[in-house]
């Protein structure tokens, strides 16, 4: 079953003796549903990763970094997970995120989605959907609404969208949310 896009899985493991880009590794690419599941069943669950590791699933040809020219004007919807959320909840959220991406669940806004990332951090894990344009209110809000709805996130849980241009100059936690849901 062919996917509309070919998706690349990236793995990041922070090692301070190397430059940031050197810690980012392309794992594999999937362009069918079967490839995707083969990939998913061969990698560690996100909850098993050590702190300061990331996974990212991005459309082929786009690197999961702000510096990629196609991400410069973009942004992300960020979901911060409380530390007390259990591992199974983290894995569930990440898998649901992946399924929304490969299934192109964002309908006409799917073209505006670049990919998604999960960051495992001691302070609290985070997942985010990256979008093409941070300023396109309709597109950003639609993506955020669908993301939250499909992931079954509580309506009380606050998610925020940030422009990469803002997170590049401030620490992530201080970056201003352009839209909040």
């Amino acid at each position: 079953h062919p996917l509309l896009n070919r998706w690349a899985l990236w793995f990041f493991k922070n090692d301070r003796s190397w430059a940031w880009e050197d810690n980012l590794h392309l794992v594999t690419k999937s362009d069918t549903v079967e490839d995707f599941w083969a990939m998913y069943s061969h990698i560690q669950l996100a909850s098993k990763l050590s702190s300061s590791c990331d996974y990212a699933l991005f459309k082929d040809g786009i690197e999961p970094m702000r510096e990629d020219s196609r991400n410069k004007r973009g942004g992300r919807w960020l979901v911060s997970l409380a530390k007390q959320q259990c591992h199974s909840e983290l894995d569930r959220l990440w898998l649901e995120t992946l399924l929304r991406l490969i299934g192109e669940s964002f309908k006409e806004h799917s073209r505006k989605v670049r990919g998604a990332a999960i960051n495992i951090r001691a302070k609290g894990d985070k997942t985010a959907i990256w979008t093409r344009a941070a300023e396109n209110q309709e597109g950003v809000l639609h993506t955020g609404r669908v993301y939250k709805e499909r992931l079954g996130l509580s309506t009380k849980m606050v998610t925020g969208s940030q422009a990469h241009a803002d997170t590049a100059t401030k620490s992530n936690s201080l970056a201003k949310n352009k839209f909040v849901m």
């Binding site: 079953h1 996917l3 509309l4 549903v33 599941w37 998913y40 399924l99 299934g103 192109e104």
Partner: peptide, 18 residues
């Protein structure tokens, strides 16, 4: 081109099929 949209249910069924 043709839109290929898969819902969650279909994707999960593919996972479980041999």
């Amino acid at each position: 081109g043709t839109r290929i949209i898969y819902d969650r249910k279909f994707l999960m069924e593919c996972r479980n099929s041999p």
